[in-house]
């Protein structure tokens, strides 16, 4: 079963996202910030990452940059999932190696659409 790392400092968002990715056929792994997510990736690279932007300790962008430097780190499909919904943030995410971008609020339909677009489904 493919794995999806859900990175968000909100427990509620992680819970909602977890339910969605499980329905899409992914095994969820959770992280509450970028550092926790990076530690998880060093241990085992996921197939997908659903990534928040603003988090304590290490934010989403910093995590993404570090992830892409890991051996095999370009393989996971990274989909940002954030309240930052202006073009500047979206462009920065793409330049930093994001594959797709979801602007919150989100629902299962949007996650499914984005996962399909990057070839995860």
């Amino acid at each position: 079963m493919p794995t999806c790392l859900i990175v968000d400092d909100s427990k509620v968002i992680r819970m909602v996202a977890k339910k969605i990715v499980v329905e899409l056929g992914f095994e969820p792994v959770e992280a509450a910030d970028g550092q926790q997510a990076l530690d998880a990736c060093k241990n085992s690279l996921p197939d997908a990452v659903l990534l928040d932007w603003n988090m304590p300790v290490m934010d989403g962008i910093q995590f993404l940059i570090e992830l892409r430097k890991l051996p095999g780190g370009t393989a996971p499909k990274v989909v940002f999932c954030t309240t930052e919904n202006d073009l500047g943030h979206i462009q920065k995410a793409i330049e930093s190696g994001a594959d797709e971008y979801i602007m919150k609020p989100f629902d299962s339909e949007i996650v499914q659409a984005k996962f399909s677009q990057v070839g995860l489904l």
Partner: peptide
């Protein structure tokens, strides 16, 4: 709407062809 541009539109095309 934000919802509409997130259904099927690749993010690279949103950046290229849309303005907020």
């Amino acid at each position: 709407t934000q919802f509409e541009v997130q259904r099927g539109l690749p993010i690279q095309l949103l950046v290229k062809y849309f303005k907020k």
